[in-house]
Design a protein around this nucleic acid. Structure first.
Length: 294
DNA sequence: AAACCAACCAACCGCGTTCTC
DNA sequence: TGAGAACGCGGTTGGTTGGTT
C-alpha cells in the first residue's frame, strides 16, 4: 500500500510550464485569489496538479518575485541564516524579500554550499568533495537535534559536546524551551519581540539576571547576572519565530558574537549540565524538542 | 563539429502538520 | 475526537545550458 497520490497523474501536463498556462493561472488567481489548490486546476481549466500550480505561483508568478542576481549582501545573509537555521529554506527565504525557498535552496546547493565549505577548509578538491558515486551531491546537511546529541552523549556516559555548527535543530514537533548563551559583554538596549512571540507568549515578561536566555513558552526570561544592574535592560535583537508551534532565533545581536566566544563554544562540562538542568527542569525532557545554540 | 561533462534550476515527490468536517 | 483533505516544506530528479576536450 503506497501513499495515495495528491491527484491523478493521467491526463495531466507535466514538466515546464508554457506561457499560456502561466497566463491562465495568473488571471485565475488575480480573479479568485490564492488557495484551494486541490480544485484550482479544474476550476481554472488547467491540466496540472494542484501542487504544481501552487509551486508555479509561489516560485515564479507571484508578484514581487526577484529572480537571479543574488547580491553579496543577500549571499552573506543567506550564509548567516543557514548557520543559524540549517536547511530551513522557507524561514531563510522569509528574511529575503522577493526570494523563494526554492531559489535559495538551489543557490545554496549549487553555489553557496561549496563556497562555505571551501572557506571553512572543508572542501579539499572539487572532485574529491563531489565523490566518486554522486555527480551532484547537494550541500544541504542533515539536521540533528540536541536531543540526539544528548542521547548519544548519555549513552557514552558523559555530557554532550558542543555542536560543530552554531545551531543544531530538528523539525520541531513542539518547542517549549529554547536556550542561548549570551556573550557576557553585551551592550545595553532593549529586547524586541516579533509578532509571533506576542501571539504565542502573550503576557511574557523579560528580566535580566544572568548569562543564559531561557525561553519557556509562554514566558520569556532573559537573565544576565554578569552585567552591572545599571547596564540593564540588555540589548537583545531577537526575532522570535513561532511557526506551527516551533520557535527559532534569528539575527541575535545582528549575527555578531562577542570577541573570544565561539559559536557553540560556550557549552561544556558542568556548565552544560547546569544548562541542561535549567532547561529540562524537574519534569524531565519530555516536552523539550529543540534548542538553539549560539 | 561532436561528444562529454558539470553546473544550474524548474519541477516533482513524499512526508509531516494543520485544517475541516 | 478521529479521519481525510489540504497545505507547506525539504529532498531529489531530470532537462537544459554552457564550457571543455
Amino acid at each position: 500500500m503506497g501513499r495515495k497520490p495528491c491527484c491523478p497523474k493521467e491526463g495531466l501536463n507535466r514538466g515546464a510550464w508554457t506561457s499560456m498556462e502561466d497566463d491562465i493561472l495568473v488571471s485565475y488567481i488575480q480573479k479568485h485569489g490564492e488557495g484551494k489548490w486541490g480544485s484550482l486546476p479544474r476550476r481554472a481549466g488547467l491540466k496540472r496538479c494542484g501542487k504544481s500550480c501552487r509551486l508555479r505561483w509561489l516560485n515564479y508568478l507571484r508578484p514581487g518575485i526577484k529572480r537571479g542576481n543574488i547580491s553579496d549582501d543577500e549571499e552573506e545573509l543567506i550564509i548567516r541564516l543557514h548557520r543559524l537555521l540549517g536547511n530551513r529554506w522557507s524561514l531563510i527565504a522569509g528574511r529575503l524579500p522577493g526570494r523563494t525557498d526554492n531559489e535559495i535552496k538551489n543557490y545554496w546547493n549549487t553555489t553557496l554550499g561549496k563556497k562555505v565549505l571551501k572557506n571553512s577548509g572543508g572542501l579539499k578538491e572539487d572532485s574529491e568533495a563531489a565523490g566518486a558515486s554522486s555527480k551532484r551531491r547537494p550541500f544541504s546537511e542533515p539536521t540533528r537535534t540536541v536531543s540526539d546529541t544528548a542521547a548519544q552523549a548519555h549513552a557514552r556516559g558523559r555530557p554532550p559536546e558542543p555542536p560543530e555548527a552554531s545551531l543544531v535543530r530538528s523539525k520541531a514537533l513542539r518547542c517549549t524551551r529554547t536556550a542561548m548563551m549570551l556573550p557576557v559583554a553585551q551592550p545595553t538596549a532593549h529586547a524586541r519581540h516579533g509578532r509571533a512571540l506576542e501571539t504565542a507568549a502573550g503576557d511574557d515578561h523579560v528580566k535580566a539576571e544572568q548569562t543564559v536566555v531561557v525561553v519557556k513558552a509562554p514566558t520569556v526570561e532573559v537573565r544576565q547576572d554578569h552585567l552591572p544592574e545599571d547596564d540593564l535592560p540588555i540589548d537583545i535583537d531577537l526575532d522570535l519565530d513561532f511557526d506551527m508551534g516551533e520557535m527559532g532565533f534569528l539575527s541575535p545581536w545582528r549575527g555578531e558574537v562577542a570577541d573570544g566566544i565561539e559559536p557553540g563554544g560556550q557549552f561544556g562540562g558542568g556548565e552544560l549540565d547546569d544548562l541542561e538542568a535549567l532547561l529540562l527542569g524537574p519534569g524531565g525532557d519530555d516536552d523539550v524538542h529543540e534548542f538553539a545554540w549560539f
